[in-house]
Design a protein around this nucleic acid. Structure first.
Length: 365
DNA sequence: CATACGTGGAC
DNA sequence: TGTCCAAGTAT
């Protein structure tokens, strides 16, 4: 495109945005705190899913000071069900970091924003352009789709170099004024018109500039070679009641899958030594060896297994029940605690845990 | 550079 | 049922 074409392209695109932009709660002002929070919530997550979480979160924690001081239990409760829980933990760390090292003010350039935990190249570009009008691209999945098609650019977006590559391609197309609106226009176009399957090219405001449209090759872009495989894992979830009728929950480590959340005690079948037909004995031995905890009456509840799929894992979970060998036994070596049935919902629950409780008929109502 | 990290929805 | 996708980042 010539400089003149680029100017016309920008004007056309921004005019379309002005007329068609979505009314989203984080677009009502350019408060960097709200822009930041929305961008983190939106990482790998759709707008419709984020909306109620954003509402609750901002109501409970309206600014950096509140977020920095929130206790972890409340933080996770606000995030429960949204997934990628390290995002929540990193938000709090970042708030503390901003208060301690930045006087409570966000740095105003993408380059500096990337030094904040949880802010990568995309989010840095989004905050810098939207909240501070820095002329930088925000290269996310929408940008890959829109610009790979616009430019018929076959760079493989599976490669880690892709982000830098497309940033370089996009930079000359960015308007000096309203770079944030331009980036948000890309997102709205990508979610409504320039969609993965069946893009609505006839409604596209920048169709005239789109190289792939001219050759009918829209669906060949973006090029993506990598495929994700889900590892299949069989597990057992245990319903263990003490003599007060409370249920044992397992506290997961801060780092890793479902970090910091509680679930029914889980054992991967890989971790059991004995053969399939002796599962109860194997579970008993496992708890004795790993947690110094004696279980009795371990039995298969023979319920339909709970299936839960993560990005990279496919879990099939069989529900078992058990009793404590000694009702007075302390569970000091077990990473968890007993919770009365009525209070099971008080802790932050991953969707997985909600499924387990429902299958075991332990949910409220 | 590859892998870990959630969930819900579309087809 | 299986597969892929959706405003990515940390390690």
């Amino acid at each position: 495109m010539t400089p003149k074409d680029i100017t016309a392209f920008q004007t056309t695109f921004l005019t379309w945005y002005d007329a068609n932009k979505r009314d989203l709660p984080w677009r009502r002002n350019h408060d960097p705190y709200l822009v930041w929070l929305s961008e983190v919530m939106l990482q790998q997550t759709q707008v419709q899913t984020v909306l109620p979480y954003f509402q609750r979160f901002t109501q409970a924690l309206p600014n950096l000071t509140a977020l920095a001081a929130v206790d972890d239990a409340q933080l996770l409760k606000l995030w429960e069900g949204l997934g990628y829980y390290s995002r929540a933990r990193n938000l709090k760390k970042a708030a503390q970091q901003l208060l301690a090292d930045y006087d409570g003010h966000f740095p105003q350039t993408a380059s500096e924003l990337e030094n904040i935990i949880g802010i990568g190249p995309y989010t840095a570009g989004a905050i810098a352009s939207i909240a501070f009008e820095e002329v930088v691209p925000a290269v996310d999945g929408n940008a890959y789709r829109v610009f790979s098609r616009l430019l018929a650019d076959d760079f493989d977006i599976s490669q880690s170099k892709a982000r830098a590559h497309f940033a370089q391609e996009i930079q000359p197309l960015l308007p000096k004024k309203r770079p944030g609106d331009f980036n948000q226009a890309v997102m709205d176009l990508g979610s409504s018109i320039c969609t993965t399957k069946d893009p609505a090219c006839l409604l596209c405001p920048i169709q005239a500039y789109c190289t792939s449209y001219q050759t009918g090759s829209q669906l060949d872009f973006p090029v993506k070679t990598k495929k994700i495989r889900q590892k299949k894992v069989q597990l057992i979830a245990l319903v263990i009641q003490n003599d007060q009728g409370a249920y044992l929950l397992q506290q997961r480590p801060e780092q890793g899958l479902l970090g910091g959340l509680t679930t029914l005690p889980l054992v991967a079948l890989d971790d059991l030594d004995l053969a399939e037909q002796t599962k109860p004995q194997a579970i008993q031995a496992y708890f004795a060896a790993n947690y110094d905890l004696a279980l009795t009456q371990v039995q298969d509840l023979k319920l339909k297994p709970v299936v839960h799929v993560f990005t990279h894992l496919h879990w099939t979970i069989h529900l078992f029940a058990a009793k404590l060998g000694d009702p007075q036994a302390d569970v000091a070596y077990f990473p968890g605690y007993f919770v009365p049935k009525a209070q099971l919902g008080n802790q932050a629950q991953a969707t997985l845990q909600k499924k387990l409780l429902k299958r075991a008929n332990l949910s409220k109502k």
